[in-house]
């Protein structure tokens, strides 16, 4: 289990990195935290000719308030996402999700950008980025573009990223004050990739009825699934226990998990129902009437 040979590049600035990625094209693989790429290299499941190490790009490790949002650099580590006061205050859903990734040592290295680009369908950060309606800031030598994460994630470990492009940051709109959140995942052991997960945000009207619902589920397909119809029909409803249970049942029925000999579809569906119900209940309990 030793990596195949590669050439190593260690750009000292973003522009140098983008230049390298542009020049090297498809032969290059950016290396962020290395917590997913590392095992793939060691097992020779990935064998790029060139590794472009992003770890010197300290300019990509930041949490910055931008108007009504939070912009977080692509090289920001999970541990910082989980513990930075700014994130915990404004995006507690993101902080909570980040705190459940892998293990303590893994979270010291793993990065936000790396996780989004790796696009593991069971991963936490793509799911919460989708439900938080985050945008990915994508840079290349040619310039910058912005993509909605939900569109950026295309399939299992497949994203809308051209050779030479790099995700430099994610922009998270901060939900309105009083928005309640819930995040639930189920894994066999602590730190394993989730078999199923759910994230929800609830805004309440003064009446206590739902003003806006956002919910997404993971483990139900190739990418996190945002449940638009359920979200629309929730507006005006009073989210008591019965409602949460009913909606969760609808979510499970709507979900279309992939066949996996180890994880039967009915089991995953049941988990999605349970987790969705818990996420909704938690979101409601944390929501404050505007």
């Amino acid at each position: 289990m030793k990596p195949a040979p590669f050439s190593y590049h260690r750009p000292g600035s973003l522009s140098e990195a983008l230049g390298l990625l542009s020049d090297l094209g498809a032969d290059a693989k950016p290396l962020a935290g290395g917590q997913s790429l590392g095992p793939m290299l060691n097992m020779r499941l990935a064998r790029p000719a060139h590794i472009v190490d992003l770890n010197d790009l300290l300019e990509l490790d930041y949490v910055r308030r931008t108007g009504d949002g939070l912009e977080i650099g692509g090289m920001t580590r999970h541990h910082r996402l989980a513990s930075a006061p700014e994130v915990r205050r404004t995006l507690p859903l993101l902080a909570e999700a980040a705190s459940t990734i892998g293990h303590y040592a893994i979270r010291q290295r793993g990065t936000l950008g790396g996780s989004i680009v790796h696009a593991d369908p069971a991963a936490q950060l793509p799911l919460v980025a989708v439900v938080l309606e985050a945008e990915a800031v994508i840079r290349s030598r040619a310039g910058e573009r912005v993509a909605v994460v939900a569109d950026f994630l295309q399939s299992i470990m497949t994203v809308d990223l051209a050779d030479g492009e790099l995700v430099t940051a994610l922009r998270f709109p901060v939900p309105p004050t009083g928005t309640g959140w819930g995040f639930e995942l189920f894994s066999r052991r602590r730190g394993d990739f989730a078999i199923a997960s759910a994230a929800a945000l609830i805004e309440l009207a003064p009446s206590g009825a739902i003003a806006a619902l956002r919910i997404a589920i993971g483990g139900a397909g190739a990418v996190p699934v945002r449940l638009d119809e359920i979200e629309h029909s929730a507006v005006g409803e009073f989210p008591d226990g019965m409602w949460c249970a009913t909606v969760a049942r609808c979510i499970a029925e709507a979900a279309n998990p992939e066949e996996d000999p180890q994880i039967p579809v009915p089991f995953r569906r049941e988990l999605l129902q349970t987790l969705a119900e818990r996420a909704l209940t938690a979101a409601h309990s944390r929501a404050a009437v505007a």
């Binding site: 189920f186 066999r188 180890q262 994880i263 039967p264 009915p266 089991f267 049941e270």
Partner: peptide, 9 residues
């Protein structure tokens, strides 16, 4: 968990 769910379903 999956084996128990299968048995309990």
């Amino acid at each position: 968990p999956q084996s128990l769910r299968t048995a309990l379903r």
